[in-house]
Design a protein around this nucleic acid. Structure first.
Lengths: 137, 137
DNA sequence: CTAATCCCAACCGAATCGGTCGGCATTATG
DNA sequence: CATAATGCCGACCGATTCGGTTGGGATTAG
């Protein structure tokens, strides 16, 4: 149970973009250099973030990446979900999940609690919070 | 970011043992059949749990497995840690971690919050709680 | 002695992770 | 128009982990 480097990098890159209030798009090599992330790897990370609509890119000479929404509207959970898949930790948590043992399974309440603890922690922080260093709650 | 089947199975097995207050050791095939877990796989799971001191085994004809401590003394977090490794999600969270960017890294506070949310959720529930179906808090 | 049971090591296919490489498409600038 | 900067995309790669299986050995109650 470990957060992937992909996800660590991705969040750092998003914070980097959020911190550059500069409206001009930030080219990938600049992010990579600033955060110490291998550029080709970062490229694939940003691709996922773009597909998830968290980031938009402009191509061509003075192109680069920008946040697709204001930093206050992007929760950390959005970034993690985009890069790590759904936050849910086990398949059996949703009621429609195919686990026929669901009724009697005591363990399920654990995973449920864990799920809500995780999404609570991640969805209550936005990128804006992180740039201010003042995390709420 | 997903809990492994190993871990799901392991917790189910532990709850199974906790529920059988019967002081006689429970043979592996009985657990496997009761929880629908492939027996050879369960064997390796129980091996880990034994190495972590959560379970003790008696060999020979009427042998089997028992909890090594009363169910009220075993937290779900102990089981997960034994099977999934340390609960910490990223390497950079401890202060001694080699991340030279640690001071300035805004993302770190996220992982810290996540870590404490997870360990809070898992360490506040014991196997005894699960057998009673009445989870505290 | 025998059968039940735990113990252990080796192996396996599939998936994921963390990257790299090479090349194509787009676009601002001169 | 030419060029250079940039994003986009697909293929590949080695290492690791996951989810199991197989086969055999050690222990012990009856």
């Amino acid at each position: 149970m470990r957060i992937s480097s992909r996800c660590e990098y991705g969040l750092r890159a998003m914070v980097f973009l959020a911190a550059s209030e500069d409206p001009r798009p930030v080219p990938l090599p600049e992010i990579a250099a600033g955060e110490g992330i291998p550029a080709p790897f970062l490229e694939r990370i940003l691709a996922r973030l773009r597909e998830s609509g968290l980031v938009k890119a402009t191509r061509g000479v003075s192109g680069g990446y920008q946040l697709a929404q204001p930093p206050g509207d992007i929760a950390v959970g959005d970034v993690v979900t985009a890069l790590e898949g759904p936050l849910s930790l086990v398949g059996c948590v949703p009621d429609d999940g195919g686990c026929e043992r669901a009724e009697s399974c005591a363990s399920r309440v654990v995973w449920r609690r864990l799920d809500s603890a995780i999404s609570g922690a991640l969805n209550s922080i936005t990128l804006e919070d992180l740039t201010r260093e003042a995390v709420p709650r």
